[in-house]
Design a protein around this nucleic acid. Structure first.
Lengths: 339, 339
DNA sequence: ATCGCTTTCTTAATCGATTAAGTACATTAT
DNA sequence: ATAATGTACTTAATCGATTAAGAAAGCGAT
């Protein structure tokens, strides 16, 4: 391994000079700096990240936290897109990505300890149980964090526009003539609370009365769970004409159930998803859904986290909301009639 | 930050003693060791990974390489499952995961340099262009590597059973009475070569003559590309009765195309995918496909890599093949008749 | 000639942990 | 009584990089 010592010997200068030259310090002459840079390149020098991290207390490494328990693991298209965009933005800014988890081999540690152990400069909390004390500890620590789809006090967060998204979906469905709209929502997280409140408010604004049995709880990203709720809806004496699902993946579970009842989409039942993952637009019929801008959220999360890391003095916590867009798709039938 | 120095002061021993006690060295008395461990716990001591990595030349960190250019990025369900299982197995064994990419901020480096810079103990090469000189450099370096679905000489690799998988699919489709079988395959990687060879061999063994225009090239995981090839197949004077797709996701592109022609699955056209991602079994009809055991591949990759890292002396390169299984699904129509 | 001021470099300490080599003391063997 | 052995520590160097503080040399001004 080539170190600055090798370069210093080759150039006949001290190690300090090499370090300064490579970091562009002011008190090194142009010629010396050039000679050192060229020698470094010729020898194939690479800085040692561990040594640097030790000395600087900065690792140029940010943690990403996905707690799989919440059903929002890496394998879900929505989250993997976020991961990918966090990764590429972080890399663009010179940071690597490490996963933060509970426990590492024999060592048992919580998220905060794991992040400290790896001296992460900051952590993106992408999907987690925000009630978990271990998450709260991390988000209250001195380690900079950015949360996605949840806000801690005095912390930066990137939020998707759940209120507007839900409103857009309801208004769209309403504009197609639907009045009996069912809403299968996810478990009661802050995201669900926003969507649910927005659903109710928008329905009220449109003068719709939604019977309580039209509002049902399922589990996010779990087709089986939403399938069961779909079955329950179909068993009602007065069926809805349209079902809103917690997310695109959950819709697939509903789809199976509708098939089983011999109901076609959108002929016999209209449906809409949420998330707007690429898959939703590959399917036929294309799913009517609301696209959450995962790429943008990931990018913003990485950007703001690194901004906070690099300019701690001028930094102030921000809550950024990223706008999505309605993807009309073909799964909401036009019932005609204006009212 | 609590360091061994703090513990040594609190316990009235030298730093060396603390280090040895915490690492279970033999020349520390039981009582002292116990006292040190307790003090460490009380003070909330955490080892500093950077200091350790610097001194030991071991980081307990393994790199994972996904080059997105190949279309096998993190967002694809098959690869994200692999990533997830590599991650959890590595964590179980006490290793963290860092993504390895080309270029990091202003520093331009190749994969090998990146891995060295972070002093990764090893790298799992999960999806990459294996002809890329940068990949070859990494896989020829002193850094332990494990490749997925490709074998480098004298290196460990985890292979899925492409030959058997393809054979199983063809035999299954044949058993349902299909004789005019088209095969849309991915771009010409080593995986494609194996599948293609197996396809041809199995067809020959079954006495099937496949016209060359039934064998077409698309791009892996690209629904649009396979949609185009599907269209080309449908334009043939003598259409196939069954289309095999490069992967499950590509099938979706074909599906859209079939819909556009008013063809139903499997009534008017039989199809099969490859990969067996969870999505394929949520769809209705359930996709006939061959499940690659991504979880197992990831787990084995991590396990073998770490074995190689920790026991370099007894280590020998291995090529492990992980068996998948046929998922019959409902997209291959039974044409009846035995011959 | 001397002082002050730059410019350009070096010295030496430091980050936190590990470990070979050394020391002090007690115990056992001869 | 002396040597040999073992136990339980400490000392000090080391990993590779950074940086405050110091030093040497050059230059102009007085």
């Amino acid at each position: 391994m080539v170190t600055i010592t090798d370069i210093s010997k080759a150039c006949g200068v001290s190690r300090a000079t090499v370090s300064k030259a490579l970091n562009g310090a002011a008190d090194i002459s142009q010629e010396t700096a050039k000679r050192i840079r060229e020698t470094a390149a010729a020898l194939g020098y690479l800085p040692n990240a561990a040594a640097r991290a030790l000395k600087l207390g900065r690792s140029y490494n940010i943690g990403v936290l996905f707690s799989d328990a919440t059903g929002g693991g890496i394998s879900h298209e929505y989250f993997s897109r976020i991961l990918e965009s966090v990764k590429s933005e972080a890399e663009r800014l010179g940071y690597d990505i490490t996963f933060i988890s509970k426990d590492l081999g024999r060592m048992s540690m919580d998220y905060y300890e794991h992040a400290k152990y790896r001296s992460c400069d900051g952590v993106v909390i992408a999907s987690a149980d925000f009630q978990d004390p271990a998450i709260i500890r991390l988000a209250s620590s001195e380690i900079p964090t950015v949360t996605l789809d949840y806000s801690f006090d005095s912390r930066t967060s990137i939020l998707s526009d759940n209120v507007r998204g839900m409103e857009a979906l309801v208004r769209y469905v309403h504009s197609k003539g639907h009045r009996r709209i069912a809403f299968i929502h996810g478990e009661l997280t802050s995201v669900t609370q926003k969507r649910l409140a927005s659903f109710k408010k928008t329905c009220a604004a449109l003068g719709l009365e939604i019977p309580p049995e039209y509002i049902r709880t399922a589990v996010f990203h779990d087709p089986r769970s939403s399938g069961l709720q779909t079955r329950a809806l179909l068993a009602l004496p007065k069926r809805p004409t349209c079902i809103l699902y917690p997310d695109d993946l959950s819709f697939l579970g509903g789809w199976s159930e509708l098939e089983r009842h011999g109901l076609s989409i959108p002929g016999d039942m209209s449906v809409a998803g949420y998330d707007g993952i690429p898959l939703s637009q590959i399917l036929r019929p294309r799913l009517s859904t609301y696209r959450q801008a995962g790429e943008e959220m990931g990018r913003e999360a990485a950007r703001l986290l690194i901004e906070q890391i690099e300019q701690p003095d001028t930094w102030i916590p921000q809550q950024i909301t990223v706008q999505g867009e309605l993807l009309p798709g073909d799964t909401v039938r036009d019932l005609g009639g204006k009212s």
